[in-house]
C-alpha cells in the first residue's frame, strides 16, 4: 500500500519535474516575446534525439550530451528566431503560434521520416545506474538525479530572473520592451537570447528524459499538451507559477493514478477547467 502510493508519487514527481522544466521555458518566452511557442515540444524531442544521435554516431556519452545538446538546440532556435520569428513581433500572437506550430510539425515529420515512429532506447549513464532501498520504497538513482537537477535548474532560473541585474532587464522587458529599448538596452538581442535559452531548457529536459522515456519523434507532442495546461493553470508568463504548478500537477497525476487510475490522463485538464473558472488569469497570473 505505502509502497504503491510512494511509487506513484515518485513517478508524479519525475513527470512534474519535466513539466516544470518545460513550462518554465515556455513562460519565459511567452513573458518577454509574447509568443506561444508551440515548437517547445519539438525542441524537447530534438534534445532527446540530438543526445541519442550523438551516442549512436559520434560515441558521445550522456554527460557530453547534457552539456552540448542545449547549446546545439539553443543555437538552432536563435537562427530560427532571427530568420522567421522576429518578423512576427508586433502582430497578433496567433501568427507566432501558427509559425511555431508549423515548425514543430515539420520537425516531427522529418524525424518520423528518418527514424520511424518506434522508440529508441537510451541507456542510463553508468554513474547513475542502480538505486537504493529507502525502506518504504525503492528509488532508482537516475530518477532521483532527475528530480534534484530539475529543481536546481528551476531554482537557478528563478534566482537569476528575480534577483539579478540580468533578470531585472528581463522583467523590465516583459513589461515595457519599447521603453527599455529607448533607455539604451538592446532589446532585440534580448529577445533572441531568451528564445534560445527557452529552447535550450527544452532540449536539456529532452536529454534528461531520454533514459526514462523512449526517444521517439512524437515524445514532444505527447507531453506538450499537459505542459500548456500547466502554463495556463500557473498563469501565462509567471515563472514561479510554472515551476510550482508543474511539480504540483505531476504529484496530482501520481495521486490520481493511485486512487483512480482511469482519470489520471484527464485530471490535469479537469484542474485547468476549474482553475480557469475560479481564477481566469491562472493561480499565479496577474489579471489584465
Amino acid at each position: 500500500m505505502v509502497q504503491a502510493l510512494s511509487g506513484q508519487l515518485l513517478i508524479g514527481l519525475i513527470n512534474g519535474s519535466f513539466y516544470a522544466l518545460l513550462s518554465l521555458g515556455l513562460a519565459v518566452i511567452f513573458g518577454l516575446l509574447n509568443v506561444v511557442n508551440f515548437a517547445h515540444g519539438a525542441q524537447y524531442m530534438l534534445g532527446a534525439f540530438v543526445a541519442w544521435m550523438g551516442m549512436q554516431y559520434l560515441g558521445l556519452g550522456y554527460w557530453w550530451a547534457l552539456i552540448l545538446t542545449p547549446l546545439v538546440v539553443g543555437l538552432l532556435a536563435v537562427v530560427f528566431e532571427r530568420l522567421f520569428l522576429r518578423r512576427l513581433y508586433g502582430l497578433d500572437p496567433l501568427y507566432g503560434l501558427l509559425l511555431t506550430f508549423g515548425a514543430a510539425l515539420v520537425l516531427e515529420g522529418i524525424f518520423q521520416n528518418i527514424f520511424g515512429i518506434s522508440g529508441n532506447s537510451y541507456p542510463v549513464p553508468a554513474l547513475l545506474q542502480g538505486g537504493s532501498n529507502l525502506g518504504f520504497m525503492y528509488l532508482p538513482r537516475y530518477r532521483g538525479w532527475v528530480v534534484v537537477v530539475s529543481m536546481a535548474i528551476c531554482f537557478g532560473s528563478w534566482f537569476v530572473i528575480e534577483k539579478t541585474r540580468l533578470g531585472a532587464y528581463l522583467r523590465a522587458g516583459t513589461e515595457k520592451p519599447l521603453l527599455l529599448q529607448g533607455f539604451g538596452v538592446n532589446v532585440p538581442v534580448m529577445f533572441t537570447l531568451t528564445y534560445g535559452f527557452g529552447a535550450a531548457l527544452a532540449a536539456f529536459a529532452g536529454v534528461m528524459a531520454a533514459p526514462i522515456y523512449q526517444v521517439t519523434p512524437l515524445m514532444g507532442s505527447n507531453v506538450i499538451m499537459v505542459v500548456f495546461a500547466v502554463v495556463v493553470i500557473g498563469g501565462m508568463g509567471s515563472i514561479v507559477g510554472s515551476i510550482v504548478t508543474g511539480l504540483g500537477l505531476g504529484l496530482v497525476e501520481g495521486l490520481t493514478k493511485f486512487y483512480y487510475a482511469p482519470a489520471s490522463d484527464v485530471i490535469v485538464f479537469v484542474v485547468m477547467a476549474i482553475v480557469l473558472l475560479v481564477r481566469p488569469a491562472g493561480l499565479f497570473g496577474k489579471a489584465q
Binding site: Y169, R171, A172, T174, F183, G184
Partner: peptide, 12 residues
C-alpha cells in the same frame, strides 16, 4: 516588477 532601487539602477 522591479523595486524602486532596481528601477533606479536599471538603465545602462
Amino acid at each position: 516588477s522591479l523595486s524602486a532601487e532596481e528601477n533606479l539602477t536599471l538603465l545602462p
